[in-house]
Amino acid sequence: MIITVASGKGGTGKTTIATNLAWTLAQKRESEQESPIWLIDCDVEAPNAALFIHPIFEIEKKVERQLPIIQQDLCTGCGVCVDVCEYNALAIARGKTLFFKDLCHACGSCVLNCPENAIQESPEMIGLLQQGNRGALKFAQGILEIGFSSPTPIIRDLKKWIIPDKPQHESTYILDASPGTACPVVESLRDADFALLVTEPTPFGLHDLKLVAELIFKEFQIPSGIVINKSGRGDEIIEQFASEMKIPILMRVPLSRDIAEAYARGDLLVDAFPQYWDQFIDLYKKISEITGERQPKQ
């Protein structure tokens, strides 16, 4: 099962929920000798789950893209590459081809279509993938190289690296998505069986929850559930939306200074406050019931 944790708004607690859920399940499954849990940090622009998990990384893999290299001596300035470039990354001025790297999506159209075969490709590193573990929890993350603006290819490669084409029924992958509802979030939700929507009971939290719920409704048609973080004041606005959209509220974490302090120290919630342990086990149980997967043993 693939569970993607998304929120729309940033700072609602996606990583808190994803790390604690993954850690709790990993411990439980280890004690029951079941298949391991993977936590995959898909927020490749600012991966921070490792700050709470403290994994030991064992394997690394570079993510590269193929950039066009124009051989000016072979180029006739015909302009075919300019016409086929969807991203306006090329121009022809006075018979010379100009290439704007920042706009290039490395789609390869110019290379394929150049009638003179004057465009070669050259790899450029755009990110790094890492995998390792902390105890029973398997962990992976992607890191977008500084100076690059396209996180989506990193997320795509990260998922391909960790999740097999046909994941085993009993394997569980928890994906921590980035904020927003744009391409990186869409990529993180692709192939997911369940979307766990973490929100806060504020107008901003609700506004962006609506956006991500709409994205899931329109593009994925997968079941979802809500976690209200920093709960306690204003929950009604989320409750009303959840009831209108028929999305169940699966868990609440109160607004509390103690929790914020533990978070700021880099502690997992379940380590600092063991009473949350059962709540995360229960959260997974509810998700399993909704998706129709087998339930964890009692």
Partner: peptide, 18 residues
């Protein structure tokens, strides 16, 4: 033709001028 380009409008418009 470049007015609504998603990106690279400057390049597209300048190419049009050329």
């Amino acid at each position: 033709p470049a007015q609504n380009a998603s990106g690279g409008a400057g390049i597209k418009a300048a190419q049009w001028m050329i």
